[in-house]
Design a protein around this nucleic acid. Structure first.
Lengths: 139, 139
DNA sequence: ATCGCTGCAAATCATTTGCAGCAGC
DNA sequence: GCTGCTGCAAATGATTTGCAGCGAT
């Protein structure tokens, strides 16, 4: 049961750093689904000496404390975004690669009642739709 | 539009090989979600000199021609299984790692009608539920 | 005789980690 | 000053690829 006042991570007390703050700023501002590499490129503009390792380390921590949401996609790369209060899913365009959020959750109705009949306790789930977005549809 | 008699892959005409046949046999018999490494270990019992590269190459080809279905999971590893006529989704146990198929598809009802209102053409989708299976639930 | 397939090893790609110094608290 | 955080570089793990020889059609 995490305490919202003193954020701790497996016994550790988190400190702040300019690098971590910048990563959060970028995720907040760009409001997008960014790969670690993309975040790295963006933070490098502010902190030219930052390393990819630091980006990964911070994304790991931020994901663990629930500030950031990590989603893995079919291309094997993870994307990160600020954790939003209501969870959501994704529309991924196979042509331009754009990722759009959808708030509809399939866990809602029939699946949920179906789960009750199964002897399985769902904790989290992922739902991603791949296809062609409005722009790429017509081509 | 692929021709079911002469299976071709981007201009190539496929030949058969004992290795490829063994991979298909294993996927058919074990009827499970196997990682490339697990498949490799199984095939090695029949073909001790087979290489992991060959396993990957065949899985790639078999996936392309639609004989095998590849799913990527949150741990970053892909799992392979024989392509079944009706597509399905997965229940993944976070404790024992067991993966169970579920035939229920969230694309069915409300999501599908919702997609019609969006300017997005869905082509494929993934839905995976992570949690604790019957066995691991009680601990 | 083609040309796809194989084993092997080296190459990639995403991500993780060990280490010594630096920086918040 | 303690200890978390950083840059750097090397390590890891999954997957891909170049190459020369083998094997199926």
């Amino acid at each position: 049961m995490p305490d919202s006042n003193s954020i701790a991570l497996s016994g550790k007390t988190l400190r702040s750093s300019k690098q971590r703050q910048s990563i959060l700023d970028i995720l907040t501002q760009q409001h997008a689904h960014l790969s670690a590499e993309e975040i790295y490129q963006s933070v490098k503009l502010l902190h030219p000496s930052i390393s990819l390792g630091t980006v990964y380390r911070n994304l790991e921590i931020l994901t663990e404390i629930g500030a950031v949401y990590r989603a893995s996609f079919a291309d094997g790369k993870a994307r990160y975004e600020m954790a939003s209060p209501g969870h959501h899913h994704h529309l991924v365009c196979l042509k331009c690669g754009n990722i759009e959020d959808i708030m509809e959750c399939p866990m809602a109705k029939d699946i949920e009642s179906f789960m009750e009949n199964r002897d399985f306790q769902p904790l989290r789930h992922y739902f991603e739709i791949y296809g062609h977005c409005a722009k790429c549809k017509q081509k």
